[in-house]
Design a protein around this nucleic acid. Structure first.
Lengths: 127, 127
DNA sequence: GACAATGTGATAATGAGTTATCAGTATAAG
DNA sequence: CTTATACTGATAACTCATTATCACATTGTC
């Protein structure tokens, strides 16, 4: 059991802000780079510690994509999926969901949840 | 560039057979365990080497699932997706696909491909 | 403002998965 | 059958993401 984060520090504020402002799943490195504009000396260990704390307290969730290290996004969003840009590598949140996949599942299988990942070019990478 | 596999060995035959017979994406460890029934002394290094060779020559493909090390399945199958049993951890191939996800993508994004992963209980784990 | 305790940054350590190394073995051409 | 060489198994080494460590800094309570 991890001890709750108790103090409000510049570093933690910056990390939360970055996650709110960019509003897409971010890797620890992406968080570091973005948050360093706000807190120049920020270290990667603090990013990992803070992300872990945010997940622990329920205000962030890990987003796992195939073949990728986990990214993190703020919790509390409604059901959604992700788009992974094959050029810049950024991951974006998508709205909407086809919903029912039971027709794909063989007899005797019981589906509990699903993940969809779309791949392609984001707006900035469609030139 | 990897040199092509040149010889037909007991180990390679066993690995190919296992992949054909089980007919689902297998982790290197799963391949090892299954193939050891055919070639008792089989080593994990040979499994990794052979899987790499099969991918290199185009007869197998890596299957990446969120948060998981790559599994491998034989190549040449038609478009399909996967089911990951949350109890036993096995991955199965599914038929069918909703097909069109363009309605989920924002203006200016271009979709190239998609992945769907269903999670739940396989037949053996639905008791 | 002082101080106890939590937080930070640099970096060493860790862990899981995978690859490299190398002495000995098996394959297949002749 | 002989022989060159590709292949194998054991295990050391490596990679990359993540976590632990520790001296120093910051927070917030009194």
């Amino acid at each position: 059991m991890l001890k709750a984060m108790e103090r409000s520090t510049r570093q933690r504020k910056a990390i939360r802000e970055v996650m709110t402002e960019l509003n897409r799943p971010l890797s620890p490195t992406e968080v570091l780079e973005a948050a360093r504009y706000k807190v120049p000396g920020l270290g990667i260990a603090t990013v990992y510690r803070t992300l872990k704390g945010l997940v622990e307290e329920g205000s962030a969730v890990a987003v796992e994509l195939p073949g990728e290290a986990p990214r993190y996004e703020l919790a509390g969003k409604k059901h959604h999926h992700h788009f992974h840009c094959t050029r810049c590598g950024k991951v974006f949140e998508l709205e909407g969901c086809p919903g029912d996949f039971s027709f794909m599942v063989p007899q005797g299988f019981k589906t509990e949840k699903h993940e969809i990942v779309l791949y392609g070019r984001c707006t900035d990478c469609c030139y």
